[in-house]
Amino acid sequence: MLSVAGLRKAYGSVVALDGADLEVATGTLAAVLGPSGCGKTTLLRCVAGFERVHSGTIAVGGRTVANTGTHMPPHRRRVAVVPQEGALFPHLSVAGNVGYGLDRAARRSGRVEEVLALVGLPGYGERMPHQLSGGQQQRVAVARALAPRPPLVLLDEPFSALDAGLRGDLRRDVREALRADGATAVLVTHDQGEALSMADQVAVMHDGQIVQSGPPSTVYREPASPWVARFVGEAVLLPATVDGPDAVTPLGRLPLHGTAGDGAVTVLLRPEQMRVSANGGGTAATVVRHDFHGHDALVQLRLTDGTEVTARILDSTPPLAVGDTVTVAVRGAARAFPML
């Protein structure tokens, strides 16, 4: 549905997009995930047509909407945007906002009420934007974008201004609304949890390029680089030496996913692969930090050779305290990257 290839865009000497590529399939929700300043908002504004691209192409539904020489104006692209702050028209009612992109006939067809119900605000049509809470304003902004059934909906960090409790519900509801309407959507976010939990496809962006794109589980389990590994979750990166199918690490001999050439590498483990016990098998370690999160805890451990690793533990009985001596073993295989 959306196809972006080799997109370049610079503001003066600042390069915002440096050959970005992205493919999004019809009916799916893709998340563009990256730290602030990586170019993700510029990518979105280029797709929407608010910015001109320097080179590369953007195609929506097989139609080229932008390349080096052409720039289709935003209103012809049929790409609807949900801005960060909602940007509801303050002078129009909720129904007026939602019906803004519809023609007269469609406005009378009940589509407005339909999308309002879809986002969980049935019967709110007569209200004015200033009478709504922040979360409700975002819901209306999503309904407004969905109403004309655009082939593509772009969401620019739409949940970042909301509190955590509200965000969870709203994410689920928005994803359901997008699914129910069969919309193709691109969500721009810097929140890993949001990207991994909402999207069918996660595209990780770094310095103006998409460095990895794939299903959330693949991006988490098989990151393309140590940088991606660290950005999409907690990562334990250890120096290691490859020896046949295994790697020799400070945590002992660990099996590797796939094969890697002999020699020095960096291996990736996730904290949930660590099995910590009071006196079981494995490498001896000392607890140096304990961060309790309720549903789990992250424990920082120092091995006898001074290497520090992070372990995620679900049930700490007996409770661990800083200074305790434990043993740590590894579940599953490690992933090797060329030495950093």
Binding site: H75, V81, P83, A87, F89, Y100, G101, P148
Partner: peptide, 27 residues
């Protein structure tokens, strides 16, 4: 009438003149 409102209007398929008439002008 901040630019983000006009961009939202444009993304909903309204041309520059129509956005001016329905969003910028009333505001």
């Amino acid at each position: 009438s901040p630019p983000s409102l006009e961009e939202a209007g444009r993304s909903l398929g309204r041309g520059p003149f129509q956005v001016f008439r329905t969003v910028t002008l009333p505001l």
